[in-house]
Design a protein around this nucleic acid. Sequence first.
DNA 1: GCGAATAGTGTTCATATAGATACATGAAGG
DNA 2: CCTTCATGTATCTATATGAACACTATTCGC
Lengths: 204, 204
Amino acid sequence: MKDTLTNRQQEVYDYLKRESRETGVMPSTREIQHFFGFASQTAAMNHLRALEKKQVIQRVPGKARAVIFPDELDREEIVDIPIYGNIAAGMGQDVDHEKEGCLSIDIRSLGLKHNARTFALKVRGESMVDAHICDGDTVVLEFREPRKNDVVAALIDGETTLKRYVVENGKPFLRAENELFPDLIPARELIIQGVLVALLRNAA
Amino acid sequence: MKDTLTNRQQEVYDYLKRESRETGVMPSTREIQHFFGFASQTAAMNHLRALEKKQVIQRVPGKARAVIFPDELDREEIVDIPIYGNIAAGMGQDVDHEKEGCLSIDIRSLGLKHNARTFALKVRGESMVDAHICDGDTVVLEFREPRKNDVVAALIDGETTLKRYVVENGKPFLRAENELFPDLIPARELIIQGVLVALLRNAA
DNA sequence: GCGAATAGTGTTCATATAGATACATGAAGG
DNA sequence: CCTTCATGTATCTATATGAACACTATTCGC
């Protein structure tokens, strides 16, 4: 029963999808009618019925604007993770604290808890390559206390960097995962901004 | 003006969010009324007005069920990428061709084209570690012709594996990115199932 | 002690909206 | 030739829904 759509039906489907995404509200039959210039509202009704029959939408009888896209329905919950700019995985550098963009992904794929406070940063530099974190990767970090050997974004002596959090003899410091980079021993303060929970790489 | 919500307002907000996500349809004022057991529909109206004043929802006057979550609105378009199971990045192994789950992410974060046909696989094995692809990573692959030195999922002599696609002297073969693994020269056939476009790692 | 915000009840009204029914036309398929 | 499906027009109806108005009670800051 999941036939292919006709051209006209595809147009209507695309309109519904686009409109509900851009405005946040599903069009009513009359809005569909006016958009396509139908003289009768029944034309819109017919198209909705056809789309429903072909399983690409669902409808709830008796409710206004109650058109549903089934594949969006069984989706996991989606979280928006703000991207705060670059972080040096090479030598320390200031983090830009302006929100530069947003990463939207379902929680299960990142294995996040629902209430976790997270943010993302773009990695610059090669100092974490031995932990398989590369220049250009996007790292997702969670606001929480670090455990030993976590990878963390840390503010060390006024600069932010991505390194492994190591504790030796009760003293915490930061270690690069690249032989060419030295350990960072905090002179004054070591503020952990976030702990690595996930990573995203764009290979294309 | 973006005050914190009262307990009651948070309850209403959560109800709207949950209901619209689970059913696909935004509740009407009467549905809110009945859910909370209000004797009057005005109570629901008041809460909506309060939530709107505090900027956590938006409404379109005169339209039915026209409650919008502003942060969902300026989200990028989200694509659903089916996960087809495991792929060996070690020695060749059969790919499970049942859909095991789904990855939902906005297209811009993966840098995908809107029309690209993609799927995802869980990596097993260490043969691609030198390309910083680890055991347990999820790779996103695009259905398309490989270019030289792309990382690909390939069906080689009946088994699927993740390797680098190399061409030497006009002959294509597969190379592991780990000294411990040998090159794979196709005896009969080399079928490319997908080209790596993105990678996802769950560190937690 | 006053005003504003919160959280409601009770009632009424206008209209937004789904939905049904009758009819038309052209293309596809058996 | 007849049926089905796609794509419409034209008209009418029941109800789903937002919205306004009058009124009450409590809490909180000033």
